[in-house]
Design a protein around this nucleic acid. Sequence first.
DNA 1: TTGTATGCGTTATCAT
DNA 2: ATGATAACGCATACAA
Lengths: 376, 376
Amino acid sequence: MTHESYGAYESHGAYESRGAYESQGAYESHGPGRRAAVRRPASIKDVAAAAGVSATTVSHVLSGNRPVNEQTAARVRSVVNRLGYVPASLARSLQAGSTSVIGLLIPDISNTFFAELAKGAEDAAHDLGYGLILCNTEFDADREDRYLGMIRSRFIDGMVYASGSPPSRRRLEALMGKFPIALADEEVEGLERALIATADHEAGGRLVGEHLRALGHRRALMLTGPRALRSSVARANGFVRAFQGEVVECVGDFKEASGYRLVAERLKEGGSKEGGLDCTAVFAANDLMAFGALTALREAGLSVPQDVSVVGFDDIRAASLAHPPLTTVHQPAYDVGRTATAQLLQYVTRGEVPPASRHTLPVELKVRGSTAPPAR
Amino acid sequence: MTHESYGAYESHGAYESRGAYESQGAYESHGPGRRAAVRRPASIKDVAAAAGVSATTVSHVLSGNRPVNEQTAARVRSVVNRLGYVPASLARSLQAGSTSVIGLLIPDISNTFFAELAKGAEDAAHDLGYGLILCNTEFDADREDRYLGMIRSRFIDGMVYASGSPPSRRRLEALMGKFPIALADEEVEGLERALIATADHEAGGRLVGEHLRALGHRRALMLTGPRALRSSVARANGFVRAFQGEVVECVGDFKEASGYRLVAERLKEGGSKEGGLDCTAVFAANDLMAFGALTALREAGLSVPQDVSVVGFDDIRAASLAHPPLTTVHQPAYDVGRTATAQLLQYVTRGEVPPASRHTLPVELKVRGSTAPPAR
DNA sequence: TTGTATGCGTTATCAT
DNA sequence: ATGATAACGCATACAA
């Protein structure tokens, strides 16, 4: 399916002539409220026959790939219009050897971080005439497999991979040597030699560490993401190194519930003291977990930032709207998606598998209302 | 592309045998960091030749559509495995006449309402073995056209349409008679005779009206969505009827900026009094516009809900996290997406164009901190 | 149990 | 300027 196939023929009047559609619909109407059976859409042969030319000529009238007598062309266009003919993109793609569609695989589309990333990817794809399929995995390995199957079966020309389910690493490894794949936002352990666009996670962690240290905190609870994710490790490393204080690490899974659970459990176990957190600050490896932490703290009667400071990561939309507004690390989600996609397409369009290349995009600390100096 | 094509052959060992991949990759490696050229992937003929059977037999070994001698089958599978053969979904779909993929067209994926709707649609699609392509239009008519082209060119088997750009109505009209299309969340004026799953917008407006009236408000500013959208009109109608007070209506476009602008302008113009709003409550037709209103009010030094009450619509995630938490109408976004998709697929799988059918799903008023009795 | 021939809808190649 | 034919990769009707 080429770019043109999306709408190039509309200008020939498919939409301009309403009557044509109504009289030649691909479906037969069986009256109001009744189901209608599908009829075979017009093919290039139908057009050729009706116009008294060969299919070859029809093809060239539509593509402009070679000169056609203007009278003939006009006749063909008229028939195209009348029959409501639209070239079958499947047949085109089969012949062309590519679909002009790539995929974007993400774990959770309702996370505005990934939504922004998706916008960047979509813009980059559209700029080059490519379609973009959003593949939402919900962190589910089966779904991920299924979507990866689309590239193995060549339904799509390439894939921007922005997920993070660790078990998929081996599959990715096999795929990356055979198909155009770019990693966005997330490096995958053992796959350093790939096309990668990512935020500077380590710097983000460092900024948070410096911020909390400067406020006077000396003991913090860190809610990390899965160990298998490079970004998790990088955020934690940057934080620990810059904070230079005591850090209690708990492993979460980037979901709000896990942030809630980890903090609630720690509050119940009582740290070392009177049922408190035993930490003056919480750094969650993403905003969602930070929100979970916020909820757990509120339920325990602790107020933020008076009793405990909380910091997130990502700067999703809800972060600035939260109560209190969440101090967090802003990731250039849109740029990550755009960069990764642009990089990928550079190779897809040339029928090449991408070489290793890393783009690290800068992050920014957004200091808001959820952080303050420790109580005492 | 059938459901099975996504991964049915993986169990034959494509992934289980790493060595096979490495020695038979579809790309030729040119050493670390160098670009690699694409090589033609193995086709069914390659497998047939290598296994010493016909392509027909290979096809049947893989599909199970007819019995094959177990020894032969084993030999074929071994070759499939060795060559890393995966059937080309394009060729399959061309032959089958359908792709087993449908589209979901939405205006803004970063709006969590649509993200939730998308999840419902995706779940429903996957349940029936269908893939789902997320088409994000950004309210852009060109993008919408482009995505609608996918159904006209039969790249997808059907479309769940959850957008709302009014100018597209005529295009939709022509399409709906020819291709399987379902409307989600949004009725389209003049297209009542279609497959529709929507929230009860009118009831939502009514709940808000009753709530504000019960609190004692008598004069409200209503920020509606575009007039051309049925949901906008329904929300406004329900509200006006139940509120039974004075209502000033301003037309927005469902974006945050428009909520901000409308309220800011009204504040500047001064209503009828001392630069105030001249209303004790604001009802925005969606949460995004409510957030814009919140910002404008805050900048004007007005506090919510002490000076002005604010109500939204949708109950997106940020609503409960906002400051103050936003009173809003909860829409069953997930169910709307799931219902519309399930309905659509019921007809897609049978190769029929859907009849008229309307599902109206219940909404719920979430009373939170942004509403209170009027000051005086 | 297996193979041959044909068709799906298009575009490219080679003629005319 | 136009057409006939092959090829893309697969599945199926028909034969054997």
